[in-house]
Design a protein around this nucleic acid. Sequence first.
DNA 1: GACAATGTAAAACGATCGTTTTACATTGTC
DNA 2: GACAATGTAAAACGATCGTTTTACATTGTC
Lengths: 177, 177
Amino acid sequence: MRLVMDKTDALTVAAERLFDTNGYTATGMDRLTQAAGMSSRTLYKHVGSKAALMGRVLAKRDRRFMQSIELQSVDALFSAIEDWIRTEGARGCLFLRSLAETGGETPEIAAAVTAHKTAFQERIHKIVAADLGHEDPVLADQILVLAEGATHAAVYRGVAAVSAARFAAGLLVDARR
Amino acid sequence: MRLVMDKTDALTVAAERLFDTNGYTATGMDRLTQAAGMSSRTLYKHVGSKAALMGRVLAKRDRRFMQSIELQSVDALFSAIEDWIRTEGARGCLFLRSLAETGGETPEIAAAVTAHKTAFQERIHKIVAADLGHEDPVLADQILVLAEGATHAAVYRGVAAVSAARFAAGLLVDARR
DNA sequence: GACAATGTAAAACGATCGTTTTACATTGTC
DNA sequence: GACAATGTAAAACGATCGTTTTACATTGTC
């Protein structure tokens, strides 16, 4: 485990913030090099291209988000989503946004999004199974929709959207217990 | 009522398609003029700027979407969302996407998104009230989250996401009846 | 302390961005 | 049929895009 961030990590962190708040296409390489304190030559030697940088950003975000939802109950899931939104803000899912921004035609981005959403679905299935004591794919699909809805309704409704999702999820889980 | 589309309408239709499938920032004005069969001079005389064009596109999409959900039951709402996705595809809400793409800093877009989401929320409250026979803001918030979730989960789960939302919505409505 | 590796700053690449202008043709109206 | 309005095609505006190159400084290793 590294105790300090090297320059490449710092670049990824800075890039995630810029892409998230300003959009992938609208963020220029000069803003990225400047924010990372790195020359463009070094940036290109390390990551190869803007699309590859976004691939790293999304892979890292996937790890970070997935770690924050290593949970055993549906209620804890929505609590974690609320925490995430409180600290990170709510601008909609960065994965879906960057996929749509690029028309699904940037391979590094498309691959990262598929990997993340597959992992996210599987995680929700596991959380539902742990909560209920058995698998329930039907309920898991409902919880997935609520989680995605909380993330996106929060853009204009704030954490109230997550509270509504959490309460609804509780009712749906109880209906299946 | 006009029976044929004039050139400005054709431009808005073409622009909606291009912005929706390729993203707002990634779509250049030359692709727009070409798709609309219109010189750039005429385009600028009519709409003023790219941001203003997007404002028109979003205003028109708002009207079209809102007309498609003039309904009196929650079940019919999700049926309409499923129809919409079957004919239009699912790339996530164009309003939220263009807002995020521009960092919320393009006035024409920010205004159109606020107007749309306010109207959307109000419509869901009305649909819930019509279905239940009385107002229920708590249920309406839950339905809003499910609708937003269906829209975005459908990007990778297809219409199955809408079916899951529809079924969950039925349970939540029954719990309040 | 030689030297390869790795970094920097800055210019340059060709392409494309949104927008305006030029020069002219087509249209609709009195 | 004169003439203002409205259209076109195409060049041009300055800015910026992602990426590469040049010329040189700093670093780490034997």
